[in-house]
Design a protein around this nucleic acid. Sequence first.
DNA 1: AGCATAATAATACAACTGTACTATAAAAGG
DNA 2: CCTTTTATAGTACAGTTGTATTATTATGCT
Lengths: 200, 200
Amino acid sequence: MPKKIDHEARKQYIAKATWKVIMDGGIEAASVRNIAKEANLSLGALRHYFTTQEELLHYAMELVKARCEARIMQVIQQVLQPKQLVTKVLLELIPIDKETMAEMQVWFMFTLHFKYKQGDAFRQTDGIRETVQRLLIFLSESGNMKEGKDLLKETEKLYALIDGLAFHRFIDPENFSGEYAAEILTEYVDDLCQEEKRSN
Amino acid sequence: MPKKIDHEARKQYIAKATWKVIMDGGIEAASVRNIAKEANLSLGALRHYFTTQEELLHYAMELVKARCEARIMQVIQQVLQPKQLVTKVLLELIPIDKETMAEMQVWFMFTLHFKYKQGDAFRQTDGIRETVQRLLIFLSESGNMKEGKDLLKETEKLYALIDGLAFHRFIDPENFSGEYAAEILTEYVDDLCQEEKRSN
DNA sequence: AGCATAATAATACAACTGTACTATAAAAGG
DNA sequence: CCTTTTATAGTACAGTTGTATTATTATGCT
């Protein structure tokens, strides 16, 4: 046998090359050849880890999702006041820095790609709506939210705000900075909460 | 000379065929051949009206924009109370029925496509941010908005909400109905306004 | 040492892409 | 009527695509 190779690590390496290609040229540039070139691999080598292009793209997308979820988990495990916790988690859902920007970019491209390409399986939710809903329930049950709010509708609004901010960051990153997006989002959560304590 | 043909009408006809192709198969399906087939034209005939694919796509996108703006103009010319007017205009910006749904779908695909393809020119804003901003200024100056709001930030929030709702309609039209999206948006504008008059 | 096997490479193939070019049909002008 | 011009059609070409197949390494195990 030849040198033993960590397949999972290699696949992640290829997935990251895929991200770069997509970031630079959109999903239309994500041909197996472009990805192989970016990863300094031959077509055959690439094919050794992903037999089909669809398989590769799907893996690359799942990796984005996993990383995002990992970041959220890291925030959740911190000891924070409800409002701070919620805000911090939500901030993980919009692209602030260069790295998360890349992930979001890739995520959008994939979402659109799979909307048409995926035959029937592969259909999956990104789970953001559920995350937002859980956060709002938490905020409400811990008594930090204004009274008389319809949780479902507030979920939908906040969910739309999140993806809208992310989309605007995606489309026009120069004019719409990450800091500004974060400010908007933070203020929105503030508005959602009781005004008794302005604990910033 | 052969039969005189209304070039503009023919171009619009081709543009609509382009929309259909994109709706069914995404931007990746929008090859000149697919579009020609959808329009029951030969490659040569198509080329007679659009010498290049990029030209065709750009025209098709501009047509979406023009139609949306026309719808907004129609609303603006109605005599309505400020809040109703604003709400109605905003509702034109999210896809409710099948027709506007198609337009938005096409718009998203184009936006993403041109983000990478357009060399340097073609860069254009969809003008939605400006529209939203004007609406909020109008709402504020007519005394219908709650006091103490930062107009710029409110613009950004509402703008993100609009595109977020549109995006969710785009991604998951079955589970996220147009009526529900409209309800969310209407309620958001309500919240933005003074509560003295619940004139629905 | 040498064989088996995993990793990589190279090439091939059919399908599709955008654009260019040539050919045909047909109708308005004189 | 016939020439001129426009709409349409058909074909060709070079490039890219995804996948399959074959060849070539090079390492680990016996």
